[in-house]
Design a protein around this nucleic acid. Sequence first.
DNA 1: ACTAATACCTAGTTATGCTAGGTATGGAAG
DNA 2: CTTCCATACCTAGCATAACTAGGTATTAGT
Lengths: 108, 108
Amino acid sequence: MLKGHLDAIVLAALEAGPAHGYAVIETIKRASAGTFNLPEGTVYPALHRLEEAGLLASAWSTPPGGRKRRVYSLTKSGTAALAGRRKTWDRFSQAVDTMLGGDKTWPA
Amino acid sequence: MLKGHLDAIVLAALEAGPAHGYAVIETIKRASAGTFNLPEGTVYPALHRLEEAGLLASAWSTPPGGRKRRVYSLTKSGTAALAGRRKTWDRFSQAVDTMLGGDKTWPA
DNA sequence: ACTAATACCTAGTTATGCTAGGTATGGAAG
DNA sequence: CTTCCATACCTAGCATAACTAGGTATTAGT
């Protein structure tokens, strides 16, 4: 249930460096302390979307004694998009906090 | 882009007391400092959904020198649902903050 | 030999928010 | 007095996002 903010999260997960899809899922799970336990059917299509949009680039790699992985990395516009998403998130979350926060100064 | 959190916002807007649809839109716009300028086609169906779900109750009223309004108020389960939504939002926003925040302690 | 974890994929469902229209009244401006 | 804007409600249909539920295949452990 990350409605609309999945892209930002995936991009953020790749900010530290390239990673393959399965690792992205694990990273998100760990970094969110289990809050975001995303099914593959959510993340893989998201990666494809982001690559399609030019925010990610991918390359196949086969580590010795391992098996084929598709490694994704942030493109330049991906980095820029992430910055934009951060600003959007800040505005958004602050607005929701204001409304859900107990203050209730805003009616009237 | 409030995907999934619209219900919480609408419920919160009605927490201070009953209001009609158009007023809810105005309240949300003002309380969010213009961040959430929601079209009617978003809010009215949401109100209907929430009433259908039993979280809101509605009644028609015609103020003197005014015209027909449908006034919505939180039901008991609406209040309970709002509390739940608040918890969900807190977990959610904290997790996103962790991932988007510059810390980057979580890879590795 | 079997199971679990790793690693990838996609077709199709569902829900949600929004676009784009429609109806109607009251008040202000021309 | 007519025209326009703000108020106030509504809905059909579109777009898309996230997820369900499947499928394939390799590696490691029991």
